[in-house]
Amino acid sequence: MMWLVILAAAAGTLALRLSFLVAGRHLKLPAWTTRITDLVFPVAIAALLGATLRGVATGGLGDFVALLAGMVVTGLIARRGRSILLAMGAGLATVFVTGLIAVAFAAGTP
């Protein structure tokens, strides 16, 4: 039964992926959908980011602040047109350092 469920979901997913690529000449999206295709990617990424942040926020303030600091650094570097790898590397370093500071601060707090 499990395999049946997996195969059905796999077939449905493949159909979603291939629909317009294979049958594009016969399928026509309504006009309004063509106006929103450029929004799909930023919206999907933003929704995932929001859900991830919610998860981190429930984990502890120190982790949340460290991640926020890393996100600011990553965003600023990426905004300046640098590579994603460089932006992420700087962001990860910021998360690491800010996390250490948060731990030290928490340890010093009575």
Binding site: L53, T74, M88, L92, F96
Partner: peptide
């Protein structure tokens, strides 16, 4: 712990371009 920050940071970098 630290590596788990990679995904949200990547999202931010991608969003900046998108």
């Amino acid at each position: 712990k630290v590596l788990s920050a990679a995904a949200p940071l990547c999202f931010v970098a991608l969003l900046t371009g998108a």
